[in-house]
Design a protein around this nucleic acid. Structure first.
Lengths: 334, 334
DNA sequence: GCCGGTCGTCGAAGCGCTTCGACACTCTCC
DNA sequence: GGAGAGTGTCGAAGCGCTTCGACGACCGGC
């Protein structure tokens, strides 16, 4: 292979047509006779032609690349982020776009750079905080963007996420249906609440409201991620509330430790304590016992984010806010 | 913001110089007087100029983008992959390159596409298998590439990785020094061995050889990743070999379960059983007790991979094989 | 049989940048 | 004081593609 790449004009010569005709065959922006199209396509295959991305971007003012901005911070459960990322890449390919990976090291400068240089057509930001430094920048950018997660002031932005408040409430409902009336939420590490990450707070709010609405006794706690800290938290919780019989865990990294702690404290799941998790399906299924859970629909969220950003790119109107309904999968833990 | 972007010719006009002069100021490929350079740089700042990536790629035949190919398969520990990825992005930025994220959904077609369309200048592939379908393709590509991990037949390729054989051996040595003479390796899930992933096998080989060399009794087992399976594996192991006193764990996802299983089987770490892990530092530190470990130097490997690929891009000779020496951090578990 | 309207194709003008050769200077050295 | 060797700058030719306007060929309608 290698050598110089095949260009569109070589294809045109080979097929006996004009360069522009080849371009129109590829883009479909003008009608081309079936016969000509056939000849052009054959030549493309015969020569192994691939359009040059730079030239195409220059001429069309579209790079067909979107940026995926991944902060990679403490307290985030990385496998979940990765599933989002993977879903975004797959979805973007369906729209014939590639994905440029941006991390937070560069701060907002990276976003500015790829937008100003027309390296990307649009942006998808993940793991958005309530007070996110990147948000003001987005507002002044010409490029469309979509956020996965909600900032404090989402007006004028396009955001998509699982409806975490509904997820928290759904877990409470499930436990209430099962007859538990004294329950607790073990949430994210406290640093995540302090940072004001939206999804953690929204889950807690949904939990608290549902507890009130059902007239249950319930408490919401932060939850660190080492075994020892989790053990202490669970032990103290059971000491305080011996009648506690239901637990909602919204912390992928801690969920295994919670189960281990319950084992060590001689509480059987689900007999003594029922456990509902908010976590990806694979984590729930791999746990012992497999956990009843509200799944975090990473694939769906990623796909939706891409769909929205493509709509914006085409100038179509999109809703400011897209909340995906939680789905509860009942397994052995409740 | 927005509106049309500033072009190089506007900068040239503003500074009262030719377009080519601006270009040379930016690239440094010809000498420019300090005075002219100053004026040009001022104009660039005043106008907020950012070179158009597409135009630059077209004219220079360099996109300043490298592809990062991430398979995202079963049995891989995702946080580790992510740390590699993050390191690659950061390192690439130091060379003024961006990173395009490719997953395996497209198979080898994605690699072919981004290379043929000149979207990327070079490729970094992660999580390489012994018999990797992507490898033959790399050989026929004009674009330079670097593999993180080793295929079975690495001749003519550039590969970089932790020296896993040395890591396995290092763990054995450490346990031998501590006086343990009956030990075991708990490795990756069996599917990973079957697939022929290099690092899992190389660790096992290093382990086995070192066991022989030190005249120890040792066994190497695959290790699944649910608690129940891990528990059974550990229980059976201790049943078979009651005198076993040292464990090497090379499986990030299972390491927490191994410790939980030992707790449940009333074996104290390190008093009854010493545990050495091969895993990222944060996992080792977060465990209870904190684990003596050979760290997986994701940042260093990622950085090295980028350095190598940039060298190749510049036409410099690079070694076929780069093995990073393992480093053992002693903590509370041995 | 002529007019207006598609339909299918072509040629050319860019898109914004890099890079090559040329040229006008200024030094340096014999 | 003139040859030779840098310096610093410019103009123009692309890089490979998209897209616009133009135009011939063919259609049906009166």
């Amino acid at each position: 292979m290698s050598g110089r790449a095949v260009t569109i004009s070589e294809v045109a010569k080979h097929a006996g047509v004009a360069v522009s005709t080849v371009s129109y065959v590829l883009s479909g922006k003008r009608t081309i006779s079936a016969d000509t199209r056939r000849r052009v396509l054959d030549s493309i295959n015969a020569l192994g032609y691939h359009p040059n991305a730079g030239a195409r971007a220059l001429a069309s003012r579209r790079s067909n690349v979107i940026a995926l901005v991944l902060p990679l911070r403490a307290g985030m459960h990385v496998p979940v982020l990765m599933r989002f990322a993977s879903a975004v890449v797959t979805a973007a390919r369906r729209f014939d776009h590639d994905v440029l990976l941006l991390t937070a090291d560069e701060g907002t400068a990276g976003i500015r750079r790829v937008a100003a240089s027309a390296l990307v057509d649009a942006l998808v930001l993940m793991d958005v905080e309530l007070d996110d430094r990147r948000v003001p920048l987005l507002r002044e950018l010409a490029e469309p963007s979509v956020l996965i997660g909600f900032p404090a002031e989402p007006a004028g932005l396009t955001c998509v996420d699982l409806d975490f408040a509904a997820a928290g409430a759904r877990c409470v409902e499930h436990l209430a249906e099962r007859g538990h009336d004294e329950i607790a939420l073990l949430g994210a590490p406290s640093v995540v609440y302090e940072r004001g990450t939206g999804f953690a707070r929204r889950t807690r709010e949904g939990f608290v409201e549902a507890v009130d609405a059902h007239g249950l006794k319930g408490v919401a706690l932060a939850c660190e991620e080492t075994f020892d800290e989790v053990y202490e938290t669970v032990r103290d919780l059971l000491l305080d509330q011996p009648a506690l019989s239901g637990l909602v865990v919204h912390n992928e990294a801690a969920v295994g430790h919670v189960l281990a702690a319950l084992r060590q404290l001689d509480r059987r799941v689900p007999h003594d304590v029922a456990v509902v998790a908010i976590c990806p399906d694979d984590v729930a299924e791999r746990a012992s016992p497999p956990l009843t859970s509200v799944l975090i629909p990473a694939e769906e969220v990623g796909r939706e984010a891409v769909r929205l950003v493509m709509d914006k790119l085409e100038g179509r109107a999109v809703p400011d806010s897209t909340l995906l309904a939680p789905q509860l999968a009942v397994r052995a833990s409740t």
